[in-house]
Design a protein around this nucleic acid. Structure first.
Lengths: 231, 231
DNA sequence: ACCAGGAAGAGAATAACATTCTCAGCGGAG
DNA sequence: CTCCGCTGAGAATGTTATTCTCTTCCTGGT
């Protein structure tokens, strides 16, 4: 159900065999493979759950593979059988977290009818979810996205897709209601807003013993919605 | 001249001795220390230059301490004599880069008289400077800031100070000219704008073989200035 | 000119991780 | 029942940062 998608191709046989091997053999192999595949998936989930638990426990994505292995009572051997490396694990969790968050936000937003109100709710919730360690479950650990943005930008983008889509939908509705600035396209507005919110929440989260910062969700919302210039 | 500031206290004797030791001794020690201090600074600079060279060469902040040591023809021993660790080196370079960028941006902005125009120029230049590897010299390597934001948020904030200050000045002028939305304080507007621009430029930099993104400096500017809502 | 002590170089030692490899046992499909 | 792929256990490897040892050198004070 959860933890799906992007490592799928790993277990898929190469398409080429489809035309080289008779269909019956295909099916036979597939049938005998299915069980194994299920077993594999179970193990996979155990790794993912363990990792998730560790992350929420110590509020950081700096865990060691060994920790995950121990926690899930499996072996390194097995870990690398299922994941290309630590980064795949992280990407899986990241993707999952973003997808869930998208659902959660969507749910929260349906309470409002006015497109802009929906966006406001969405933005504020996204802001909360994006800040590090609100002691809450499943912080978005947007913190580790940057490191992967350099090495796996494509995957990160894929992970972002659900949120982008959600925000785009909302922006489209806002546009239809004439609430969107005419010079900006919904998808662009969505992307810009999301990035702004996520990053600001992130960089803002660490405690400020000092004078200033703690930018609030409201401020962030106002900034995205109205900019800083006087109309 | 350059590469100054935040590791200064390292070589400063503890203030306490000032009251415990006679002043003449202080001065004597200081005099005899001065030369050594200069020598030390030379080495320091060699490390920093070497690191900077490596970074601009391979366009990433993922170098090893060994590389820096070799490149500067010095020794590990010496490196750790001068720096508390790799992170101090990075912070030094980061701080320096941000300070220079602030100067550069300030210079570019003085060409305009209208506060908003100045801001626009500033924002667009900041955007360019913040994107990874424009093959240009000294990209802001804003990429590594995130990793340090967690472990050394205070230092990162210090490094950001010059830019924040610059943008705040400009926002203040804009406010005076009635070009700033009344509900937003200059310093906040500055912080929000900076973060937005830097992060968007950053995450946007990596090549998009696909359909969409490449958010432009203009788009980013418009977003910050006017938000997305229809007035 | 001479000496003590603080830097510096060379590079080995340590530590923490990720990733890979070896070997032996297990369990399911035929 | 038997074979083979999947596992567990954990050793081995490789990369880095960081520390440590020992020796050499230079400098400033006498």
């Amino acid at each position: 159900m959860q933890y799906l998608s992007h490592m799928a191709q790993k277990t898929e046989p190469p398409v080429s065999t489809a035309s080289e091997e008779p269909a019956w053999k295909q099916r036979a192999v597939e049938r005998s493979t299915k069980a194994a595949k299920l077993r594999a998936e179970k193990r996979l989930v155990r790794f993912l759950d363990a990792a998730q638990a560790i992350i929420t426990e110590k509020g950081t994505t700096d865990f060691t593979v060994q920790e995950v292995v121990d926690r899930s009572s499996q072996s390194l051997r097995s870990f690398y059988q299922h994941f290309g490396g630590k980064h795949e694990l992280l990407l899986a969790l990241f993707e999952d977290a973003l997808a869930r968050s998208a659902d959660q936000i969507r749910a929260a937003a349906t309470g409002r009818s006015d497109p802009l109100s929906q966006l406001k709710v969405a933005v504020q919730l996204l802001f909360e979810l994006s800040r590090p360690d609100p002691a809450a479950q499943r912080p978005l650990f947007t913190d580790f996205a940057p490191r992967l943005l350099l090495t796996h930008s494509v995957e990160v983008k894929i992970a972002h897709a659900p949120l982008i889509e959600l925000f785009t939908e909302m922006m489209v509705r806002a546009e239809a209601a004439g609430q969107l600035r005419p010079t900006i396209k919904p998808r662009r507005a969505a992307a810009l807003t999301m990035q702004t919110i996520m990053f600001i929440a992130q960089s803002n989260g660490v405690s400020d013993d000092e004078t200033v910062n703690p930018i609030s969700a409201d401020e962030a919302w106002e900034f995205c919605a109205m900019g800083f210039a006087h109309p």
